[in-house]
Design a protein around this nucleic acid. Structure first.
Lengths: 226, 226
DNA sequence: ACGGGCCTTCATCAAATCTTCACCGGAGAC
DNA sequence: GTCTCCGGTGAAGATTTGATGAAGGCCCGT
């Protein structure tokens, strides 16, 4: 899950980034409206958290511009005053929800999750593949009865593979989805994390759940799929 | 599918090449405009990805030169600034689409696919010939119920033969389509791969699905057609 | 400051795959 | 029937790719 936070106040931005990363989201930051709009247009996010008061272009404008471009990405607006005006203006401009500063981080999280759930086709917060069970909301994983603890990168990769099971994901796609990096292809970072993942989720005896597709990337197959 | 990437920044060029190769395209690189134009004229590509800022000859000029030569090959321009000027100039010079740097690789891919789709009558995602079934999207193959695992070269050749079934494809055509340039044709590399393919897709008993046309190349016939 | 966990990079190794080559046998020409 | 190419064949050698183990750096909590 990849989020974009558009917020000019550095300390608030860092606070949000850190908190969201702890919830295992990949987070990009933008410091002003223009930058935010640009990023939103040229990368694919699952949710955009948008401050209203921004240099260069305010949150409403960014939101309208996005919707004018037919973007469907859910937008959560952060307004300052508790004025009905702002609220109406926000929802009018195409935002999906709003939150008034100051807010509790837990509430932001709750609304963010609600928005993320809304768009996704994913019916339940849970997914079972073979003996593996994954809880998208709690970000927890079990193999049978036993819980498996993954690091955030491991979790992010596994979730991406599972949400797209039976589709081969290229290393490039994985890097783009899980990291925020630009044009870096000379690394085997994906392989290394895959190895760590395999070590944790495969039992010594069984064949690997994650299949390597030589020259391309990795897949997880639904059992019995053809 | 064979693509030409004209880009002077080595790291970006490598990034694009690797990412596109992971998507099973054959990719040639050119480092400057002149080289790009030369390659584009003397080899046949399905798509050209063209940076605007290039040594010797900029992207617009290359594009115009190509169009002046009546080339129909789709061109995707990579512009730097988000200025309308560049956009207009680009489309004026005959490009089919453009993308502003920095971009997400997934977006480049989406646009590249859109351009490649244009013109061709895209056969459905799946194709059945005899007891062979092929999934163009997942790049997977089955004979009856049993999945057959091919190497990337084998797959590329088989897909090419199947997309052009009932047409005899010469070795030269196959080489040009499946390999990137820098390949001489005084080799029996195609024959060797065809042999490997036959070993995998033909059952021991049955006659070969791939027919040899002596002195020319190879064909796959639609059942009942010949 | 210290130690631990995590992320990332790097070098190395083994396996899969690609390519070349030499030889053989059959198809087609005569 | 014989001769000549052309393609089939098997195997060796080269190359590419992924797996692996280890080391260094960074961040965080103590």
């Amino acid at each position: 899950m990849r989020l974009l936070v558009v917020e000019d106040d550095r300390s608030v931005a860092q606070f949000l980034k850190k908190g969201l990363q702890e919830e295992r989201y990949a987070v990009d930051l933008a410091e002003d409206g223009e930058m935010g709009l640009h990023l939103a247009r040229h990368a694919s996010y699952d949710l955009i958290i948008l401050d209203v008061m921004l240099p260069k272009m305010d949150g409403f404008a960014v939101c309208r511009a996005l919707r004018a471009g037919a973007s469907q990405t859910p937008v959560l607006l952060l307004t300052v005053k508790d004025s009905t005006d702002d609220t109406v203006l926000g929802l009018d401009s195409g935002a999906d929800d709003y939150l008034t500063k100051p807010f509790a981080f837990a509430e932001l999280l709750a609304r963010a999750r609600a928005l993320l759930r809304r768009g996704t086709v994913q019916p339940a917060g849970r997914l079972t593949v073979g003996e593996l069970q994954l809880d998208f909301v709690a970000h927890r994983i079990w193999r049978g009865q036993e819980e498996i603890f993954l690091t955030s990168k491991e979790y992010a990769i596994l979730e991406y593979l599972l949400r797209n099971r039976d589709r081969v994901l290229t290393r490039t796609a994985i890097i783009e989805h899980v990291w925020n990096s630009q044009y870096d292809c000379m690394t085997n970072i994906v392989d290394v994390h895959i190895r760590a993942l395999r070590a944790k989720i495969d039992r010594p005896a069984t064949a690997s759940l994650i299949h390597t597709v030589r020259g391309i990337g990795y897949v997880i197959h639904t059992p019995g799929n053809r």
